[in-house]
Write a protein that binds this DNA or RNA. Structure first.
Lengths: 221, 221
DNA sequence: CCAAAAGTGTTTTGCATACACCCATGA
DNA sequence: TCATGGGTGTATGCAAAACACTTTTGG
């Protein structure tokens, strides 16, 4: 048995997604410490002895972005021996979905920066975070097709077009308007508010809201 | 920040499935040490500093059952603070599928026993292993419907009925013979050997084999 | 000859897909 | 009045589901 490495410590990494500018975006932080000084990475950190792994993910999400009560799902555990050059760290990866509306990034002294990047234009990432984000984006697609979690990316009230566009952006394909509306209505996951979204130079759109904002398994596509 | 607990150590637990006697069975070991003396548990153990988490799962699988090169997939990481009464242990759970044919259980001195239990008649389990096995059985169902991994539960040559029964046992529902054969043939994942299975007092069945025994995504049902 | 499982097609049904025009508004 | 996106229904294709009888063997 090797003496070269100590036992591993446990960390969490949280891939935070949101939609804006017709893109799926990922939150990254710029590192201040070696060996990845100046490199971007997914926010995360160690799991403390007195908190569960899930709680650690929530805590890092909260302190890095100020959001809580959002959709957060465990993704996969990355456990290669040399994934962190500075020591043996096993990372439990999570992904989170947050509505962009009113999001304000909290820049802390801990990092040299916090920024959103479109998923298709990520910079070079530290550790195995490229692999983690790819994995997260893949899981997000699968999940979106078989659950109602899209609600966590949208504001309380939204138009059918906004809903459809969200799917289009994440799944990366066009969706037929009429077929989509038919399907969504049959699923009973949204209901009409009586409100109307005015102010744009075209026909105003009806506003809808989710009947329930708890994760539920449904076949959207 | 709490001083009460040290940082966590990392373990793996492997839920090993096989099919026999028309049941889905799980391999359990009987513990010799407190605080779970005499209680059954899923095989597992610590992750060493010089091995990846995946390797640790393979190692524990091999030393407990003597099998290798079987289907092994990471399931979920269980990280509640008090899931192990003797210390802070975060467990990365895996599930494995092995063909029953010729399996011989290796009883080691480490444990008071090694046995197969039908999934619907498990004894009381140590730690959170009840939750882990439920989760594994659920994932197995999902996976079975969307991949070819059933091959890891069957011998090299098998009849269409054996194949169909395997699905029926795991999914817990009857499957129409003709529709099933039609679907399986359309998937191009099995091919006929020229052999025939004789010896039973009924019409002999053709033997088939899997074209490929590597995991592949297909929609079986 | 009997019991038991193997083998084999057709019809029906429901869901996914494809597709185009009119409407309401702000500028 | 024009540009822009909102809103709406039908026809077609395909895959899943339902369904029953004949065949081959061992005993």
């Amino acid at each position: 048995m090797g003496k070269k490495y100590k036992f591993a410590v446990i960390a969490v990494d949280v891939v935070i997604f949101t939609i804006f500018s017709n893109k799926l975006n990922v939150l990254l932080i710029k590192m201040k410490k070696k060996p990845y000084l100046g490199t971007w990475a997914v926010p995360g950190g160690l799991v403390r002895g007195d908190e569960s792994v899930d709680q650690a993910a929530q805590r890092h999400l909260l302190t890095k972005t100020g959001v809580k009560n959002v959709y957060l799902e465990q993704l996969y555990t990355f456990g290669r021996v040399s994934r962190d050059p500075s020591g043996r760290v096993v990372s439990v990866a999570y992904f989170a979905l947050i509505p962009f509306k009113g999001m304000r990034l909290k820049t802390t002294k801990e990092y040299a920066g916090v920024e959103w990047f479109p998923i298709d234009k990520l910079p070079r990432l530290a550790y195995d975070h490229r692999e983690i984000t790819s994995y997260a984006a893949e899981r997000l697609k699968l999940k979106l097709e078989r659950s109602n979690i899209i609600y966590s990316l949208l504001p309380n009230e939204f138009t059918l077009t906004e809903l459809r566009k969200s799917y289009e952006i994440i799944l990366g394909k066009k969706i037929d308007k009429r077929n989509f509306y038919k399907k969504i209505r049959s699923l009973n996951i949204i209901k009409s508010t009586q409100k109307i979204k005015r102010g744009e130079s075209n026909r105003p759109a009806k506003l809808y809201t989710f009947i329930s904002r708890t994760p539920k398994q449904v076949n959207v596509l």
